[in-house]
Computed example of a mutant assay.
Amino acid sequence: MSARSRAAWPLVALFAAGYLAAYLLPTVVGRLSSGLGLSSTQAGLIGSALLLSSAAAGFTLASRVERYGERRLARLGLLLAFAGYGGGALTTYVPLVVAGAAVGGFGSGTATAVAAAGMAARPDPHRATTLGLLTVSATAGTLYLTIPHLGGGHALPFAAIALVAAAVWPVTGRLPEAGPARVTAAGDAPVSPLPRLRSGAVLAVGMLCWSLAQNALWGVSGRIGLNQAGLSEVTVGAVFAVALGAGLLGVSGAGALGLRLGRTAPIGVGTVVIAGCVVLSSSARDLPSFAGGVMLWNVFYPVVLSYLLGLAAALDPRGRWAVLVGSASSLGVACGPLTGSLLSEQLGFVGMGTVLAALLLVVAGPLGVVARGVSGRGPVVGTVHQDEPRVALAS
């Protein structure tokens, strides 16, 4: 059994540790505002700095994971995450909190980059990605239910992310010390160009817009429930908790379905359904419509995300497109809350939802086209393809 095969669960754990900060962003931003006396805009900017730093790590490391080795980079990422978030949890001095969020974000992005590259080389990257999303959803859901009972302040969510990074550290010992080297018949080790450049670029841009739309709504969902639907904070929190549970069902369903329907229908049709959920959530004026929109949205969002990430992995078995597309997604996540706030202030919640739904409908077409053009798993590690340099991966 190869090192890649043995490393499945370590990659899943690493993926969950890297993605956790983005999943906990609403409570991180809320606690920064209430715990440090910051305005909503100031707290949101710190959250954006965290995610932008995470995206920067992905763009920086997209083609370097093999060079430096999965184990080394994974440990560096987890160390930065533990030090950054842990340091931010121990202080109330805002500049140090900002620095901790940025350092921790870079660590999260590094861990995610390693996990994405490793998952792309798996025989079934969609299954690995689904397991990763299932794990991070379950972890985030548990923390959403636990943190409110442990007290206030910004330290708790920061400390939780740091502790998860520390908990994942031991499993990195099962990752390879150095990535497999690409060799040719002549024995040299060339650096191959990115395959399927046009499809990858369309997917990256589409993923940025897709994630921006999702997180623009997520950033103001609490305000929609409180101000427009007239719900209490307790009720809104309960809706979010149930929605996370619904998301687990969605991820489980995606894992069970696999590629039986291909990727085109889940991505294209799923994005259209999400657009409808966005309209329903943004126009909610009572509990049934608000809860229905949020829960349906959380069912379909991780399903489509798993297929998008699996599609990115299928474009390049070395994982470079998986890392780049994931980083583009992080960039969209970072810009989402600010976009949602600006649109809701200018157009109201209903107008904002209409604009975001239209954006999703626009990107659904190109994303579906890319998915249709990539059949099956994509390039398989260790094989030779006509449209790529004739190289093989040394096992």
Rank of each mutant, 00 (worst) to 15 (best):
T92A: 13
V381M: 13
S199Q: 15
V323D: 06
T383F: 07
G69T: 02
G47D: 00
A55D: 10
T339K: 05
W321T: 05
L261E: 12
V278Y: 12
A275F: 15
P123A: 10
D188P: 14
P26W: 02
A43Y: 13
A159L: 12
A392G: 00
G206H: 08
P288K: 10
A167D: 12
L20M: 03
F300C: 15
A243L: 00
E177L: 11
D124V: 08
A328E: 00
R377Y: 07
A178I: 11
T142D: 02
L280A: 11
D286Q: 11
G152K: 15
A213N: 04
L163Q: 03
V239A: 08
G35S: 13
P190M: 01
A102V: 15
A7K: 08
T271P: 09
L324D: 10
L51F: 04
F82D: 01
L50P: 01
D387F: 03
P170V: 06
A17W: 06
V325N: 09
S34N: 14
P170N: 08
A7P: 11
T60V: 08
G222E: 11
T92M: 03
R31P: 04
V205Y: 00
A165R: 01
C335L: 14
A13L: 14
V303H: 02
V299E: 03
R64M: 06
T146G: 07
N215T: 06
G262S: 09
L324P: 08
T383I: 02
A364F: 02
S329M: 07
P170T: 13
G69H: 06
V370C: 06
V171D: 01
A49I: 12
T110A: 07
S53V: 05
G378W: 05
